[in-house]
Computed example of a mutant assay.
Amino acid sequence: MDQHIAESIGRPDLVRLDDRLVCLRFETMKVVSALAAVGHLLDTGVVRRGDTLLDSSSGIYAYALALACHRHGMRCHIVGSTTVDHTLRTQLAVLGATLTQMEPCNDLKLDQKRRVERIHEILAEHPEYHWMRQYHDDIHYLGYRTVADRIREATGADGLTLVGGVGSGASTGALARYLRTAADDPAKGEAHGEAGGEADVELVGVQPYGSVTFGAEHVCDPEIIIAGIGSSIPFGNVSHELYDVLHWVAFDAALAGSVDLLRRHAVFAGLSTGAGYLAARHERERSPERTVLFIAADTGHRYVDTVYARHREVAPMADFAPREVTDQGQLALPWSRMRWNRAPAAPWPAGRPAEVTLTSARASARG
């Protein structure tokens, strides 16, 4: 029996949509990483019960961290995006979290930059706060080990293609890393063909146009509202060398995917899931011998007005096909695909503003 609702919320469903297409459906995905991260910080003495945990969020992580703090008796302070809606604001307030929300802004790139700047202002005022650094600390990988074990048991690992939003790198990166690595139990590893080697798991990352993470900042999608899977600032815990293929998906194509997923399979999920579903179906057609699993990171409730209310005007999914590119200079809306081949990240150009980093001892008064 679960001891807290966060444990239940963080446990995903595995839904087979057809013989080679599987949906890993979360109610709120980042609860998995937040719970494990906070538990690890407590176990290692970095923080104590009653301390304040601080981070920035466009929505999902805010709720996840608030739940993790509620579970472990911590205080929570969120610097929230302008996109945080009334429902989430109310939930955070009742859970006892403090929300500092950015002023309305049409530019989500600027919104993200302003949030990080506000984080540093708060840390200057409260050096005793611990900054969770969801975008930079790979402590957020830890919670996905049990999810990877569940996927391995249900689908096997060899011949698996994993598709999902890149975001901070924690979900897709962690799942791929754990699925590729031989199981801790040698007998289990041999049963799944791992036997001390690396399982055949391809990782397909989904990005919005405008994201700097894989070099698409020069392409603008005027309707982009899926900031959670991309970034206008470099993220420190994205392991570029884990990714085999990338898809950049614009709003219109993601909208078509979201509506088709609900209409065809009755899965009600967020806009980034629609983008992932679109990419997953394409990868399945390209590789008929592989099982394709895509991540549904959250439900579709906060997208009712911006996405699902437009279901009558959406173009059929068949109208969309990816433009195959070999470098980022060829990227074009509404959908592009490129083989990344597990290449490392390109160097961040000199003179270009990089993400500010915390130079104090991990935002903790105890160091």
Rank of each mutant, 00 (worst) to 15 (best):
Q3P: 00
L17I: 06
D18I: 00
D19R: 15
D19A: 07
L24P: 01
F26Y: 15
V31Y: 02
V38Y: 02
V38P: 01
D43K: 08
T44G: 01
D51R: 03
T52W: 09
S57E: 07
G59E: 04
G59L: 03
I60L: 06
Y63T: 06
L67D: 10
M74S: 10
C76K: 06
C76H: 10
C76N: 12
V84E: 01
V84C: 11
T87P: 00
A93V: 00
V94M: 08
L95S: 12
T100Q: 15
M102H: 15
Q112F: 01
V116H: 14
Y135L: 02
Y135D: 07
D137S: 08
A148D: 01
D149A: 04
D149G: 13
T155Y: 11
G159T: 11
V163F: 03
S171T: 10
L175I: 02
Y178N: 01
T181Q: 14
A182E: 13
G189I: 03
G193P: 10
G196R: 05
V206N: 11
V206E: 03
G230N: 12
V238K: 04
L242K: 02
V245A: 08
W248K: 09
L255E: 14
A256F: 06
L261G: 05
T273C: 14
G276C: 10
A280E: 07
R290H: 06
F294C: 01
Y303P: 12
A309G: 09
A318W: 07
D319T: 08
A321G: 15
Q328Y: 03
A332Y: 12
R342H: 13
R342G: 06
W348L: 05
W348T: 07
P349T: 11
G351L: 03
T357N: 14
T359H: 05
